[in-house]
Write a protein that binds this DNA or RNA. Structure first.
Lengths: 346, 346
DNA sequence: CGCGCTTCTTGACACGAGTCAAGTGCTGTT
DNA sequence: AACAGCACTTGACTCGTGTCAAGAAGCGCG
């Protein structure tokens, strides 16, 4: 008897994958009864249960989830697309998302766009093709109209983790007031008497960073202080080291405070300052953004603007779950940043 | 005409998902020709191509990847199960894995077991049901026999990121010599004249940590020095703070070096020491493990035993790809740790 | 014995694609 | 005019499941 699908390996070796037909045959029941055994066990007699259980064990049968999904038309999976999961902020966010999604009975597949619009699109294509139940994304470019169509036409749950005013179409968002975050950082710096501030970050690459800069600029302009901007290609520690070195190389008129677009840049800048023999905060102050776990733990504990990453991830998942429970289009979720004052600003 | 699958939302709203049938009808071709359009465009005339393309665009048709997978029996996805993706070491590892997998044409789904055997099993169930092409796992318990069966019976690619001697069955592994790592740390400490060493970590929870401890113990015993062990529940910074505090509370006979089971614990321990008014490395020395990016960046740059996380992740993916290319059971990959001496040990 | 009722059990039919042998035109050659 | 050859196009079948109406078996009751 040649049963089971035979897969031929690349070297000609063959493997047989067990399907419910073989199980049914061995247990001497109809194939559909094996289905009942898994999905509606109350319909199956004790005797049949035992025989099927034995056959399943002997053959090592695992129901094919793909076929089940095909039949039901949608899979119990939520997709999460972030910029870079290895940046602690996104790692935290993913963690919160995953916890909530799992509690709601969904699995999570995680993707990094790596800030590439191309990869972002490829990942969305993948998720769309898999008929995933819902998608949350920290977008690099505006994908809202596409997601809106998914929501409207296909009934998918979608959420964008970005400022609603950046989002063209009508898609639920989870966001944090980055401009306020920038103002908090700026005001804190000015309150400590600064007249010359440098902003370090990838301003032109990223909305959020731009908003933070706008917030800083608002406060600086209001007080007639001086703002210098140091553009970085990315927001890693190396970028921070680099940008800070550039600042310090300017012999005349060194800024009193370095406001950084995130904690990684700030940690890099901090390192560069210390290495240059400056002491923080006496000679120069540093402010970060995000409040990752390592901020409090740096050579000089870092003052920073806290984003509640895990909560935001959880909120995104919650928004998807609400849509999937059929509660309509949920309201946008807006979070507020919080200033954390530590030693790097005295 | 009522075409397309109609999904009924929980509130009674309906959505129609476009299938190739509607596209075919609108383009006035046979459904199977739409298949040709996507998979063998050379068979399709220019005229038909245009009509199909138009229909696809107008209806927003996205081929159902689930159905395609069902037909082919396997999906172009690799699963990666790690303990905690938000621990920097695993984040790095995932990054390496993802890069290599993607270069090989596979998508990656990432799971955290959170050190729970239950969740680990649930994730493996999920991957098995999805007929994923390959699975790599950093195991919490011994899952090797199960994976071996997958490889033998179903022709799946599998890899375990663990010491081969911990792995019962015949499954390709990627590992690092943790005992050597422990010896490196121990020898370094002793070479600096230490006679009393404390080891901080979750020894009983984790093979790797236990091996590191064994390595340390070997060197310590060989020199007749004293070794004290501080068990922690997990390997977070908080655990490090806690364990170090316990060490410092012992008024008599403070150890000269704290050897930690990973960098997070070491960073926590470092913080606790500094807060207690001790200076590092003058009053007490600290050694970590992993060499995460933040180790070099700590209050006192951290001496540590480097694990090439990204390379190990990439190696795991490569092992899977080799199996999928039909190159048989690849040889185990063994990495060597490397001592990184920084200021926390003078 | 016949009827209804409950408790299983079954076969037929989707789901949405890929595949392939068979079919339809059309062109060019003899 | 017949036919081979080529370029497309099509319908039927398959993948492994969930669902559901219909069938079977057993049982109690009148």
């Amino acid at each position: 008897m040649e049963m089971g699908t035979t897969l031929c390996g690349p070297r000609g070796e063959t493997h047989t994958v067990v399907s419910r037909r073989e199980v049914a045959q061995r247990a001497d029941v109809a194939p559909s009864h094996v289905s009942n055994y898994f999905n509606r066990p109350d319909l199956v007699s004790e005797k049949a249960k035992q025989r099927i259980a034995a056959a399943v064990a002997e053959l090592g049968y695992v129901p094919n989830g793909i076929a089940a999904e095909l039949k039901s038309g949608r899979s119990a999976v939520l997709g999460l697309v972030v910029l870079d999961a290895w940046i602690p902020y996104f790692a935290e966010l993913s963690r919160g998302f995953e916890r909530t999604a799992e509690a709601g009975g969904y699995s999570v597949v995680l993707f990094n766009s790596g800030r590439s619009a191309q990869r972002e699109e490829a990942h969305l294509d993948f998720l769309a093709a898999r008929r995933v139940a819902g998608v949350a994304i920290v977008p690099q470019v505006d994908v809202s109209s596409r997601l809106e169509r998914w929501r409207e036409d296909a009934g998918m749950a979608v959420t964008i983790l970005d400022d609603p005013c950046r989002v063209g179409a009508d898609v639920p968002t989870v966001s944090l007031d980055d401009e306020l975050g920038g103002r908090l950082a700026g005001e804190h710096a000015l309150a400590r008497g600064a007249r010359h501030i440098a902003f370090l970050g990838a301003c032109s690459v990223n909305h959020q960073v731009m908003d933070r800069l706008t917030g800083v600029r608002t406060t600086v302009d209001a007080r007639g202080a001086r703002l210098e901007i140091l553009e970085t290609p990315d927001v890693t520690m190396a970028d921070g080291v680099d940008a800070a070195s550039r600042v310090l190389a300017l012999s005349r008129a060194r800024p009193e405070v370095l406001v950084c677009s995130n904690d990684l840049v700030a940690l890099g800048a901090l390192q560069a300052c210390l290495k240059a023999g400056l002491s923080v905060p006496e000679d120069i102050e540093v402010i970060g953004y995000d409040d990752i776990a390592f901020a409090a733990q740096a050579a000089v504990p870092l003052s920073t603007v806290r984003q509640p990453a895990a909560e935001m991830g959880a909120a995104a998942a919650e928004l998807l779950l609400r849509q999937l429970r059929g509660e309509g289009r949920p309201a946008d979720q807006r979070f507020e940043p919080e200033l954390m004052v530590r030693e790097s600003t005295g």
